[in-house]
């Protein structure tokens, strides 16, 4: 069957984008292919790995399991919006210093999960951090340095 493209308006990292997309387009593909924001990664497209995690209207979500059309009129935060101009987000600084990114592929989603956690809970316990990143798989670090980086970022802010 044919289906008409849908016109959507989505605010991404504070900037409003008006695009036409087919109904089948995922939010992940919309960000990567339509807007060229390739920081958000595809890891499984099954909602299991968290590489595509972004913040949608203040809530952490996996962009691979959301239709772009569902984001119409809503606001998305991605890794590209984390730094304030030249000024890195505290998490970006502590991730770098702690060695919390190795291959770096899970890092954008992981950073968004951590940001979302700190937005909700500015001084989390280690256990709360662990729960906060449980939906983001990392195969390189063993998670210890990531948890350390979040604890340090929480201390900073």
């Amino acid at each position: 069957m044919t289906a008409e493209p849908i016109r959507i308006t989505v605010t991404v990292n504070g900037e409003s984008f008006r695009e036409e997309v087919p109904a089948t387009r995922s939010l992940l593909d919309f960000l990567r292919d339509d807007l060229g924001l390739t920081g958000t990664k595809e890891g499984c497209s099954e909602g299991e790995c968290g590489a595509c995690a972004v913040i949608l209207d203040g809530r952490l979500v996996d962009a691979c399991l959301i239709f772009a059309a569902e984001a119409d009129g809503r606001s998305v935060e991605t890794v590209e919006g984390l730094a304030d101009g030249e000024e890195l987000h505290p998490l970006q600084r502590t991730f770098a210093a702690a060695g919390a990114a190795q291959c770096g592929y899970c890092t954008p989603g992981m950073l968004m999960a951590c940001k979302s956690l700190l937005d909700r809970n500015p001084s989390p316990t280690r256990e709360e951090v662990t729960h906060g990143i449980a939906g983001n798989l990392c195969r390189c670090t063993g998670y210890g340095t990531i948890i350390q980086a979040v604890m340090e970022a929480a201390k900073e802010s």
Partner: peptide, 9 residues
């Protein structure tokens, strides 16, 4: 139920 991402949706 799943991760925070999943529970949010």
């Amino acid at each position: 139920v799943g991760s925070i991402q999943t529970r949010n949706r």
